[in-house]
Structure formats: structure tokens, C-alpha cells
Amino acid sequence: MKPNAMIELNKVSKHYDGTIAVDSVDLSIKQGDFCVLVGTSGCGKSTTLRMINRLISHTKGQIMIEGQEIMSFDPQSLRRRIGYAIQNTGLFPHWDVARNIGTVPKLLGWPKHKIQARIEELLELLNLPYSSFAHKYPSELSGGQAQRVGVARALAGDPDILLMDEPFGALDPITRESLQQELLRIQQQIHKTIVFVTHDMDEALKLANHIVVMDQGRIVQQATPYELLLNPANSFVSQLLGGEDRGLKQAGLMHVADFMKTNRTMTPSDHQLAQIKPDDSLRLALSVMLWHQQEQLIVMDDNHCVGEISLQQIIQAKPYADHHG
């Protein structure tokens, strides 16, 4: 067993009378990892996730959390230390937002003032002002707001592990995009171990530092997003990666700042060139070039020029092997 593995699955299987949903899965997730299980529907990714908090009991193998077999815990106390967020939010419609978020702290028997403080802290973290949201009911929230509350509720008991089962699956693309950004921002602040299930490879590439591709109950490949893009294990993985679209997906993971030519001062002719920010992706830079029909862009950071990037530099960009998080 690896020393700093937060979650460890050893030859874990799940059989449902005759059919095999998950087949001998080995998986090790480190403390602070953002691990995304990705695959088509029915591939066993959700089942794998739900076995970790014992919502589904595994048939064979071992699941360890911090080195302890999960069957040695009482299921309720196990679940109370693992955050859980799901696609349809599962918010309790008869409780207001504050009470929904306070669910796990209350189950854990926290004192009232501590629960209250935690609710305020989490609403602030999720950009939901306490005064206008705490006493709303789930039916009064938009899809995005409801899912923010769902994430806040999952974090409420300050768990080390966060399980998320397609949490953004039902949202429109714009809301999904902003919630993904927010989740990355939050993860940088709180460093939880996150296990995230999705069928959307773009989402996986964007969020994960550890992608696990599953098919028919087995793990097909696990790698960092870059490795996955560079060396897909088989045609199934490259198909999931979008085939010929891979180039763009890869460019979407690389930042302008890492490839631009720096030490450049503005010249009067630069005003005709389109601009881009250093933390934008190469994919966006390419799109801006196509749109403006220019082979060169000015990189601007807070209204002053920090460099330039050319089509040539984008095409020759070599993905950094181990980065992103």
C-alpha cells in the first residue's frame, strides 16, 4: 500500500445477480488529488464512486480510507466524514438553504453557533450572500444556485474526501463552466481529496489532475490529463478524447504565459493586433487568431504589454509533462 494514499481500491468488484458492474478495479487516490472517473453511461464509474461511501456495498476486494478498510466503520459515521454531491442536487425541498447546509454538522452534533458560523462561511465561499440565500427554499433557486448549495452542503462537515456524482451534468453550458471554475478555485483554497464522476471528457480534462477512464466495469487507463492526451491507451480512449479534436483539447490545457515571447515593448503598429491575456489557453489564442485573421497576438496583462505569441509558437508548443492542478 502506498503511504500517502487517501483512498485505495484493491481488486474491487461489484456483482449484481450475474452481471458484473465493476470488475476488479485497482485505484489509488492521493491526499489532495482531484480524481475524475470518466466513461460512457453504464461503465461502472458511478457504482465505483458510491462504493467508497458504502451507498453500494462491494462484492469483492478491499476499499481503504486512510489505510482503514471501510467495512470496519459504521456506514453512517463513514458517510458523515465524506462529502457527497449529486447531479440533481438532492437538496431537501422542505428545508431552507441554511438548514440544508447544516445537515451534516447537525448529524455530527456540532454546537449551534459553530453550525451557524460554518453555514455563513460556506455561503461566502460559494458566492451566495447569506442575507439573500440562507432562508430561501430549494424551489426558489436557479439550477446553478441549487448546485452551489449542494456543493456547500457536501463541504459542511469539513470532510477530507468529497465525492461528486456528475454534479454539473444537468446545468446549461455557461453555468457549468462557471461552476467548474469555482470548484477549481475552491479546491485551491481547501485541498480536499475529490473523486468526481462525469461522462464529459472536456470537464474531466479541465478539472482533474488524475483521470481514470472506465469502460465495462474496468479501468482502461489512468493518467494525468496531458499523458492521456499524448498517449491514449487504445481507440476507446482516443474516441472519448474526441479523435481529431485532441489537438484543440490539448491546446485548451496550455496557458499562453508559458509559450509567449516575453520582454517585448509596445510599438505603434501593435495597436492593430488583437490581444489576449497570459492565463488564457492556447486554444483561445488560436480561436482569436482565426477570428481576426492574424498570425500574431499581443499578450496584455492589466493594460500593459507582457509579450507576444505567434501561430508558429502555438503549433510548436510542447505540452509540459507534469503540470496542472
Binding site: L78, R79, I86, N88, T89, G90, F92, P93, V104, L107
Partner: peptide
């Protein structure tokens, strides 16, 4: 009662009795 609500209640760590009395019955 919405299955996802019950799923969430279990996933939060409510005991079967708590799921029934605090979630299923009131809903």
C-alpha cells in the same frame, strides 16, 4: 419521494430512521 433526495440523505450519513423521519415522512 424523489429518489435523489433520499440518496443524498443517505449519502450525508443519516440513519434509516433519520431518513424516514426527517426526509421521507415530512415530504
Amino acid at each position: 419521494v424523489d429518489a435523489s433526495v433520499i440518496d443524498a440523505a443517505k449519502g450525508m450519513g443519516m440513519s434509516p430512521l433519520e431518513v424516514f423521519l426527517q426526509v421521507r415522512l415530512p415530504l
